[in-house]
């Protein structure tokens, strides 16, 4: 478990407020969200009260999430911010009275996060669009879905994608990642394309996943952005900074005394579509022009 102390606003060594932050995993999506959170909070508190942030990036497993949540409760922070469903659920499970602001939660309406002490924001990505774009690139008989059965939101994304695929007569190959050795399943999945859910474990090992899939030239789609350009062919994702900024706004209100239950939670549905043409060329995939013009961004 990695704990980082980050003090906003220099000067007084004794911070007046402390925020504990837990990421479901040390993945770039939550990293970008947190960066936007800190930046927005800095902006709101410029020249004002000192805020200390205790950031925890546990390895994605149940015990680590629980330990991270308990540690922040033991620190008696003024507010907990959690990114991603497993971290959020770990905090809620502890039944603390410390206010919680969540972000990066997939379909918040489908999780029991509402309560006296919690508010936050989440996102939803239309999974059918990913299948639609795959089908325009190559025949799709079997879709491999990478998820992690220990991450609740990843399981829901797996189930939603499976339903959509099966409705369209596409077989689904289930690739459950719990330990690194599970990546071996990718070698025998015989999928025409792979969809990666928002699993922290999958994203922790994204480079390894791409290495395995590059040889058989299996195209990959993801609902997190591939900012490191690991080789994902297309991403349809909700921009993380928007949730980070929204979470900062909510955190600021709570630190000023507003009750979390009075702050409306929200679900972001805006997305960005990115095609990686470098990867497409490597795979011998020709992107039709009418598809390319749909992209928010094209990696060349």
């Amino acid at each position: 478990m990695l704990t980082v102390l980050c003090v906003l606003a220099a000067g007084d060594l004794h911070a007046q407020k402390r925020i504990g932050v837990i990421m479901t995993g040390d993945v770039p999506y939550y990293g970008a969200m947190h960066e936007a959170f800190v930046s927005e909070l800095n902006r709101r508190y410029a020249g004002g009260e000192k805020i200390e942030i205790i950031l925890q990036k546990p390895f994605p497993d149940s015990i680590s999430w629980s330990n991270a949540a308990r540690k922040l409760i033991a620190f008696d922070v003024d507010l907990i911010v959690a990114y991603g469903s497993p971290a959020i659920q770990a905090v809620i499970h502890e039944k603390s009275r410390i206010p919680l602001v969540y972000a990066g939660l997939y379909e918040p309406d489908h999780e029991e996060v509402a309560g006296k002490y919690a508010t936050g924001c989440g996102f939803k990505v239309p999974l059918t669009s990913i299948i639609r774009y795959f089908k325009q690139l190559k025949p799709l008989t079997t879709l491999g879905i990478v998820y992690s059965s220990i991450e609740e939101d990843s399981v829901r994304q797996y189930e939603a994608m499976k339903d959509v695929a099966e409705q369209q007569g596409i077989r689904v190959a289930k690739i459950d990642i719990r330990v690194h050795a599970d990546l071996e399943q990718l070698k025998t999945a015989k999928a025409d394309a792979i969809f990666i859910t928002g699993s922290s474990l999958a994203h922790l090992w994204l480079a390894d996943i791409m290495t395995i899939l590059r040889k058989p030239q299996v195209p990959v789609a993801d609902i997190f952005p591939d900012d490191a350009e690991a080789g994902v062919l297309m991403t349809l994702s909700q921009p993380p900074h928007i949730q980070g900024e929204m979470a900062a706004g909510m955190a600021a209100k709570i630190l000023r005394g507003e009750k979390p239950a009075k702050i409306l939670a929200c679900t972001f549905r805006d997305t960005e579509l990115v095609f990686n043409l470098v990867e497409a060329r490597h795979m011998g995939i020709d992107f039709p022009i009418h598809l390319l013009i749909e992209a928010t961004r094209v990696i060349e």
Binding site: K124, P126, T128, S129, R132, Q167, T271
Partner: peptide, 27 residues
């Protein structure tokens, strides 16, 4: 497609194009 993908919340388009797309992909 922008509305389908969530790149926009609301969209305007003509029925003939919409019907053709739905015919090709009922989802």
């Amino acid at each position: 497609f922008a509305v389908l993908d969530g790149r926009a919340d609301i969209g305007a388009a003509k029925d003939t194009v919409y019907n053709r797309l739905v015919h090709n992909d009922p989802s």
